[in-house]
């Protein structure tokens, strides 16, 4: 615990110039993480053990990376539950993620979180819009993006049965948009329309789409 608190303390000191606070919960410890991005919304990270699971927190490893001289820091952990409050909508969220492992990088001006085996709840205009599952993902607090890769599955909440599958999906949390690339397959639960393309843009609800990379659409109940 002493090491943990020491690292967290350095993490705190490393970005003391910041305007908005991000709160980090690790091993039942609360930490205020500074960052210098005035527009960045607080990032709240919880260990999975603080959720419904009664199991104690798993082994935690921390690797300092030039924390003393540059303020950079790298934190690794085995499980993570993180939420991103929506700065424009108090009490609402931009996303919630669950992942089996993560690396948190804080190079002074931004927080980058790399996660593995991620499940995410994505919000659009403050409303839960879709779930996302991916083997790997990266969150960037400056761009407010989640870059998911390794074979991504997105399922709309508001459009039952509507799904998106692609090699990679970028979630733009600030605008509630998605960009899917690589072997994109979109399936509409109502019309059973199935679209194949290499690049597809859409909203998080998967209700509006556009593609300029060519492709095909199949309608089972056709002409």
């Amino acid at each position: 615990m002493h090491t943990l608190l020491s690292i967290l303390s350095k993490l705190n000191r490393s970005s003391h110039r910041q305007h908005t606070a991000a709160r980090l919960f690790l091993a039942f410890t609360t930490l205020t993480v500074s960052n210098s991005i005035a527009s960045a919304a607080p990032l709240v990270v919880h260990p999975l053990s603080s959720l419904a699971s009664a199991k104690p927190h798993q082994a935690v490893g921390f690797n300092k990376n030039d924390a003393g001289s540059t303020g950079n820091l790298e934190v690794t952990n085995s499980n993570i539950y993180a939420v991103q409050p929506d700065p424009k909508r108090p009490g609402k969220f931009m996303w919630k993620i669950w992942a089996s492992g993560f690396t948190l990088l804080n190079p002074g001006k931004q927080i980058t979180v790399n996660v593995q085996n991620m499940s995410a709840l994505l919000f659009q205009a403050g409303q839960a819009a879709a779930t996302l599952h991916a083997p790997r993902a990266t969150y960037d607090n400056i761009q407010h993006t989640i870059v998911a890769s390794g074979g991504v599955n997105v399922r709309s909440i508001s459009e039952p049965g509507t799904t998106l599958r692609a090699d990679n999906v970028v979630f733009y949390a600030a605008t509630g948009k998605l960009k899917a690339t690589g072997h994109v397959v979109y399936h509409n639960g109502k019309t059973l329309m199935e679209l194949h393309t290499n690049e597809l843009d859409g909203d998080t609800k998967l209700k509006t789409l556009s593609s300029n990379s060519g492709g095909s659409v199949a309608l089972p109940k056709g002409l």
């Binding site: 859409g202 209700k207 556009s210 060519g214 309608l219 056709g222």
Partner: peptide, 27 residues
């Protein structure tokens, strides 16, 4: 008999109740 329809396109937009396929569309 009526059956599945496939549309090949270059540009595509979908708005929930309709879609537009453009650019050398083959249906």
């Amino acid at each position: 008999t009526i059956g599945p329809v496939t549309i090949v396109y270059k540009h595509f937009t979908y708005t929930g109740s309709s879609f537009t396929a453009e650019g050398g569309v083959t249906l």
